[in-house]
């Protein structure tokens, strides 16, 4: 099985300089339809090779920030720089800039159904590389490699509507990896996956990070946080960043987690018992939903 390292070798231009700043968001404010606030004066810097978790309750603006980082939404106020250049709607209309940016940033959407839109899995994975100007032969090679790596070679000719949720997720990830991006954005990647697929995905993300990819994950799952991230950015429910630090520190700050609605009093109250069973998704949900 080719490892993530082979995938990294696709692109010779991967720059190995450590500590290099790749994303800089400054005072970004965004509202949907100028009415529904989603980001409120958000500033964030991401360096090469980091594993950043965007942490926050539902509706706090994680997905919106990811879309800003992927150049799909543009802040009403504030700015966004990527790889040293400002990313604006106008800049992205430049073909070369667009191609450069899209090749370097990959986005795995929360809803795989939206992301897997081609008639077959093979064409789905080929979509990105072809759009970014790769030749048919090079694309076919990448499709082949990525399918082997994610163990979906036998699904090549299947239609997306014939796939299970876990398989769709794999295809969605494959379709992004085929472009060999430097930065990978994941929107709640482990939500709605069975435990086996979840742990497979976590291993994959770690492997990708070790091969030099920068990882940004939106999540409200505290259980996997200390494995998946080396930095946590916490959102409050009024769409602001209220904390930024290593997961150990953030997870111990119960007061903070309660204030942003990621932890409920109950979990704190019988704190001793809440550590005897895993912090799984349903557990947290049951605490939130009343």
């Amino acid at each position: 099985m080719p490892s993530a390292v082979d995938i990294a070798a696709f692109d010779a231009s991967v720059c190995a300089r450590e500590d290099q700043e790749i994303f800089r968001v400054e005072h970004a404010t965004f509202s949907y339809l100028e009415r529904f606030p989603a980001l409120n004066d958000v500033s964030l810097t991401v360096r090469r090779g980091e594993k950043v978790a965007l942490l926050g309750a539902n509706g706090c603006g994680k997905s919106t920030l990811l879309k800003v980082l992927d150049g799909l939404l543009f802040a009403d106020r504030g700015s966004f720089h990527a790889f040293g250049a400002e990313v604006t709607e106008a800049n992205l209309e430049d073909e070369q800039f667009n191609e450069g940016f899209r090749t370097r940033v990959g986005f795995v959407f929360q809803n795989s159904d939206a992301q897997v839109f081609s008639p077959t899995v093979r064409e789905e994975i080929a979509f990105g590389p072809l759009n970014l100007g790769l030749s048919i032969d090079a694309t076919q090679q990448r499709v082949h490699d990525v399918m082997r790596m994610l163990e979906i070679s036998d699904l090549a000719e299947r239609a997306p509507y014939q796939l299970s949720g876990g398989q769709k997720k794999r295809v969605a990830i494959a379709s992004v990896l085929a472009m060999n991006p430097e930065v990978l954005l994941f929107d709640e990647p482990t939500a709605a996956l069975d435990p086996r697929t979840q742990s497979w995905l976590i291993d994959l993300i770690l492997e990708l990070n070790q091969s030099g990819k920068t990882i940004i994950i939106a999540t409200h799952d505290l259980a996997t946080l200390d494995v998946l991230a080396d930095r946590c950015v916490v959102f409050s429910e009024d769409h602001q960043i209220v904390a930024d630090g290593p997961p150990g520190t953030i997870l111990r700050d119960t007061e903070l987690l309660i204030s942003v609605n990621l932890l409920h009093d109950h979990a704190h109250d019988h704190g001793s018992t809440s550590h005897t069973h895993p912090h799984d998704e349903s557990h947290h949900d049951s605490h939130r939903e009343h």
Partner: peptide, 22 residues
């Protein structure tokens, strides 16, 4: 969904020209 799909396409470099591998 159609908005999401469009975003997902743009994110992978779609600019209005669909290319085919076949």
């Amino acid at each position: 969904l159609s908005i999401e799909v469009h975003d997902a396409m743009v994110a992978r470099g779609y600019t209005g020209n669909a290319r085919s591998i076949d």
